[in-house]
């Protein structure tokens, strides 16, 4: 009926053989869900901040929105398999860790810089410190679940 070439959606290249079920096994599922909840929380808060009072603290609120997007991408990257998504997972999770450490420190050293709370203020205290705890857990899990052939993901260029 339809022409076979109709579907041009750029699907992520799936490693044809030995596709490891990286994103969806064991306790990793719980990790994904916690990331999902954090993404939901960060998105919700960011939506409210921007909709209601963006002018008050544009920097903090833009950062909130950025953090929310990164959490969403990290959640998706953890679910998908393949070395490309693996690298994206590393990048986003590392970014979150850097974010929570940087903003957490800044919010204590110079509170006036961030008059409004972000997910990362005070090392994520407003989110039960989950933003601080989750990235190391995520990285630990990623390190233990490399995609096939143990290519040093992240260090190589395009791994396919």
């Amino acid at each position: 009926m339809t022409s076979p070439n109709e579907r041009l959606q750029a699907k992520p290249v799936s490693p044809s053989s030995a596709s490891p079920k990286r994103g969806i096994s064991g306790i990793g599922r719980v990790l994904v869900v916690v990331y999902g909840i954090l993404a939901l929380g960060a998105t919700g808060r960011s939506f409210v901040q921007i909709a209601e009072r963006f002018d008050e603290a544009p920097v903090a609120y833009t950062l909130s929105a950025l953090a929310a997007v990164v959490y969403i991408v990290a959640t998706v990257a953890l679910i998908r398999s393949g070395s490309g998504w693996y690298r994206i997972a590393w990048i986003t999770i590392a970014f979150e860790f850097l974010g929570v450490l940087t903003i957490g420190t800044l919010s204590i050293v110079d509170p006036e810089l961030f008059p409004a709370a972000t997910v990362w203020s005070y090392y994520g205290a407003g989110y039960l410190f989950i933003p601080l705890v989750l990235p190391p857990l995520g990285m630990w899990w990623l390190a233990r679940h490399r995609p096939n052939r143990g290519v040093a993901a992240g260090a190589t260029g395009d791994a396919r």
Partner: peptide, 13 residues
Amino acid sequence: DRSKWSTVILGVA
């Protein structure tokens, strides 16, 4: 997903 982790996930939620 019928596994024990789904039960854990219910708890987390």
